[in-house]
Write a protein that binds this DNA or RNA. Structure first.
Length: 273
DNA sequence: ACTACAACTTGGGCGC
DNA sequence: TGCGCCCAAGTTGTAG
């Protein structure tokens, strides 16, 4: 589920509660969620480390350790991070548990197990290819229409290009649909067919939708909750995603749903050209 | 180098 | 109630 706004929400909450805390114990409950190194080494190497700054890159959460190295999480479709007090039990589908020095535990919970975690040793962030391959950050001030134009090279559908993490980091199925609606661009348009004014509109739409979504706590379709267990509210503002057959908020015509490279795609046939 | 699709996995919702 | 089918916020690997 979690796309850039949801991950950013969680990042901010982690940044408020974790830095300065030491990890006392690490328990991997499902080995295959650990991408690197092997689960035993992951457990061993994290014990005694102190959490520093919490960063985000695309949909990845990066917990810098003060001693060096980075603890990484990708939430996949249903992944959650939860902080529980000393006496609270771990929820169903807890995959990794980190006990902190204040007694609380940081839990990685994921029913579908598409999520991943890894520990990247100091100075070895480049060894983790998924991160190395990520495209630019859409909310980075340096990301302008020119950078977007670069991401939209080639004649594939613009929506697929927006979701391609190596072209642009952070957009998934929900926000790709929402952004294209706000810009008035049809999801099936070849990326390289967009005029520069259209690119500027799309660039603006990306910044506006993502910023707005972060401020509204992200979108909760089914599973997403933030660190405190609270759902987002941006789904109430979706113009097209999940609204097939309902009126387009701009023109009132029914929103259509189709399939584009295997993903359900929502758009207004009247507003999006 | 493209695009399309299956695979990974669990669970919810729907029709019968 | 239950079974079977379809669907789901993501990524990766393979086939064409």
């Amino acid at each position: 589920m979690p796309e850039l706004p949801e991950v950013e929400r969680i990042r901010r909450q982690l940044q408020q509660s974790l830095p300065g805390l030491r990890i006392r114990e690490v328990e991997v409950l499902l080995a295959r969620v650990v991408d690197f190194p092997n689960p035993e080494e992951y457990e061993r190497v994290l014990v005694g480390k102190t959490v520093g700054e919490v960063k985000r890159r695309g949909k990845y959460l990066l917990l810098r350790m003060q001693e060096g190295g980075v603890l990484l999480f990708h939430l996949g479709m249903t992944g959650r991070l939860v902080v529980v007090s000393e006496r609270e039990g771990a929820p169903l589908h807890t995959r990794v548990a980190l006990r902190l020095e204040d007694g609380r535990r940081l839990l990685f919970v994921d029913s579908r197990t598409f999520g991943k975690t890894a520990f990247l040793p100091p100075g070895r962030k480049d060894l983790y290819l998924p991160i190395k391959r990520l495209g630019p950050e859409p909310l980075d001030p340096a990301f302008g229409p020119r950078e977007l134009a670069k991401a939209l090279r080639g004649r594939g559908p613009v929506k697929s290009q927006l979701m391609d993490q190596s072209r642009l980091a952070g957009l998934g199925n929900i926000y790709a649909d929402e952004v294209l609606h706000r810009a008035g661009i049809h999801p099936c348009r070849p990326g390289n067919s967009l005029s520069f004014p259209e690119i500027r509109r799309l660039h603006r739409a990306i910044r506006e939708v993502l910023t707005d979504a972060v401020n509204k706590g992200g979108s909760t379709i089914r599973d997403y909750v933030d660190l405190r267990g609270e759902a987002g509210s941006f789904q109430e503002h979706h113009a097209v995603y999940g609204r097939a057959g309902k009126p387009c908020p701009r023109c009132g015509k029914p929103v259509e749903r189709t399939k584009l490279s295997g993903r359900s795609t929502h758009f207004c046939p009247a507003c999006q050209r």
